[in-house]
Design a protein around this nucleic acid. Structure first.
Lengths: 228, 228
DNA sequence: CAGGTTTGAAACAATTCCTGACAAAAGTGC
DNA sequence: GCACTTTTGTCAGGAATTGTTTCAAACCTG
């Protein structure tokens, strides 16, 4: 079966051109014209690679990239008309694998797609969409968290932070790393906020926030999610 | 242990600049000024990534890339002043992972290096993460220490010091070295505190702190952790 | 503009760290 | 073995750091 490439871009013409190009090279193309549609299709069709536009009306590409990374390790290539170095760096730091500036050359694009697919371990895409720690469940696709089967409402930042902790369950993550993962590389100084959000999360998911059983402090280093 | 990057380029100035840049970001740089030298050093030092110039007097970069690929799957990034699409495509088709055109931006180069290193498997960390000495177990991932299966709480400094001792189990480490490793190079005068912390640790992990069985004194030199 | 969300600053609480003094033990020469 | 010196171990309390909580202002977003 051919390798599947998901193209997410609000510009229909671009999607069309990319489809033709990629299909000519033997790939199967899945098309999405909006960010949320892209995420849903990523989940459903398990693509081997994602081509992602940076600017879209409903949600920017950065956010899509972040959420995709929560779901899987699929290779992500940004496509953007904005070619400033800071954007490229931002995209790569955010977990993307490459950043191609429009207008791109068809051959180069295909070559880069191929290079990344070559590395990619195969259709081992989305692994655990749900973390189940007995009393505690988190579903990364619909962003639901349940404690003792009670649904807990989390804000975006709260969910993002909790996600980083859960995906690294069992190991201590430094504050700096947590901030980098949950806020993005450009918020190195958000450590104050981090403490707050740890507090919020504990209020929401811990039975007794004073004696946390999930989100544990590692003094002088960071936090870790108990590996049940 | 820092990740190793092999830089192969016949232009000494370029190599020098790259070294400074990469070392500032915490990488260890191995330098090679000729193609054959580069291949030899790749073989000997097992780099985690290779930065490769396309044009060199003795053998061109393409050939180096091909031969490297015969030896290993190490990520390869081409660096070249020739930015024509056909060269980029050729490089990527040849097995390289990325192609950066000179003059490059420092931040972008580092970001791309990071992106590729993130993908690469990493030098089998798993065994190093837990030390199991029968009655004594230390888990560097979640920073837990257990003696006779009892969980022992350690402060950051205590853990750091114990970590150095355990990682060098069986070997005597000088006081100066211990301080340097556990406190950092700038605290050369913390030798006074060292004996304090040795004391704390013994109180916490030894059955009989007066007759230590784990943390042993080597009079006039330093301490060592019993190797079991 | 009203709601929830995010941020910064600061008070408060707890722990971790260091200082200096002294006690104990190990090595040394007689 | 006995004094002496050197090195290592122990102790206590206060300084410094780190973590938690509260409060209020800024910020979106619909």
């Amino acid at each position: 079966m051919p390798e599947k490439i998901l193209v997410i871009d609000d510009d229909e013409a671009t999607v069309q051109l990319l489809s033709i190009l990629l299909e000519r090279h033997g790939y199967e193309v899945i098309k999405a014209y909006r960010a949320d549609e892209g995420l849903r299709k990523a989940y459903r069709s398990q693509p081997n690679l994602v081509l992602l536009d940076v600017m879209m009306p409903d949600m920017d590409g950065w956010e899509v990239c972040r959420r995709l990374r929560e779901l899987s390790d699929v290779p992500i290539i940004f496509l953007s008309a904005r070619g400033e170095v800071r954007d490229v760096v931002k995209g790569l730091e955010m977990g993307a694998d490459d950043y191609i500036i429009k207008p791109y050359d068809n051959d180069e694009l295909v070559a880069r797609v191929r290079a990344h697919l070559r590395r990619s371990p195969g259709p081992t895409v989305s692994e655990e969409l749900v973390f189940d720690g007995g009393q505690f469940r988190i579903n990364f696709l619909n962003r639901e968290v349940r404690v003792k089967s009670r649904l807990v409402h989390l804000t975006p930042k709260e969910f993002s932070l909790l996600g980083v902790l859960v995906r690294n369950a069992g190991r201590v993550i430094t504050r700096a790393e947590l901030v980098r993962e949950a806020w993005g590389p450009e918020y190195a100084d958000a450590i104050d906020s981090l403490k707050l959000y740890i507090h919020y999360l504990r209020q929401k998911i811990e039975t007794n926030p004073q004696r946390p059983e999930y989100i544990l402090t590692s003094r002088g280093v960071g936090y870790r999610f108990a590996g049940h």
